[in-house]
Amino acid sequence: MRKVFKISLALVLASTISYASKIVSVGGSITETIVAFGHQDDLIGVDLSSSYPKDLKSKLPNVGYWLSLPQEGILSLKPEIAIISSQAKPKKVVDNLTNYGIKTHIIEDKPSIDSAKRKILQIGKILGEDKKAEEIISRIDTNISKINEQIKGKNKPKVLFVFSRGKGTMMAAGPKTKPGVMIELAGGKNAVDFDQYSKISPESILKMNPDVIIKSNHAGDSGLDDKIVASTNAGKNGQIYSIDMLLISGFTVRVDSALQKLSCMLNNQQLSYCK
């Protein structure tokens, strides 16, 4: 009888381990949070936006891009669990996963600090890492409080964030994009007058005359014209920086680090935590 019990217990444990080790993650910030909880080895697939840690995509199959998910991308991996950003599309594909026996968790993924913290709590609960989630949130709150103290009362520089989707497709992020919200939280004012992402020309950059220019380093050359940039306040004062796209737009477990880095860029590296 005791032998039978031991065998049954072993089967239960094996089943639990197998279940926990078959996760597909959709959304860069979702994947990064799973990794932060120490569950990188539980992942069997990620989407194309999951760019952190850098070697993750080279080790795991990708299931497509989170804003245009092909259903077969996830189904082909036969996951037990799918942890998916609430912004993932098409919704029909996401909603249909449960019909294939996949336990699907939809995670809040909005551009705010509160949403980032709820994301951490949600994923922590799924993975049984509630204590780690609380520790991460406590760290974020402490660091953001320090940031707010440092930038309080300082002038808000005019900031332009740009990235490229290929030659001749330089884009800028408006105030209602995730990078735009991050710029405001870090103590800046967006240089553009449109809300979302839009293609911009070198001439429009000259007209904006930003105090700070930040480039995404996710796709190499941003397409900025050096002569145009040199004529702006940012160029004249050497206030041109690059940053990882996921860091500035992910609202991940590194949101406090992102805001520290951004606020340093906006204040010429003159804050106490700037290196």
Rank of each mutant, 00 (worst) to 15 (best):
D55E: 14
K91Q: 15
S145E: 14
L97D: 04
D244M: 08
N143Q: 15
L247V: 04
I248C: 09
P90C: 07
V63L: 08
G73T: 11
K215T: 13
S263V: 10
I120N: 07
L43K: 06
G101E: 11
E203R: 00
E135D: 15
L11Y: 00
G27C: 11
Q239A: 12
M208K: 06
T177V: 03
D226G: 06
S15N: 09
D109A: 14
G180T: 04
N268L: 01
A133E: 12
L67D: 12
G180K: 01
I84E: 06
G238D: 06
K167T: 14
I243S: 00
T104S: 02
P202F: 11
S263F: 08
G101N: 03
I7V: 13
T142W: 01
M182S: 15
M1Q: 14
E149Q: 12
P111C: 05
N143P: 01
L247A: 01
Q87H: 06
S231K: 15
E32V: 01
G153C: 04
S222K: 02
V255C: 13
D221Y: 07
S8V: 15
S201V: 05
I30K: 09
H218A: 14
L13Y: 08
N233K: 12
V26C: 05
Y197R: 09
E108M: 09
I151H: 01
K3D: 15
D195W: 00
G168F: 05
N233V: 01
Y52S: 08
D193Y: 10
S8Q: 12
N267Y: 01
R2D: 13
A88P: 10
A20N: 13
K261C: 02
L246M: 13
I30A: 05
Q71W: 03
L60E: 05
F5N: 09
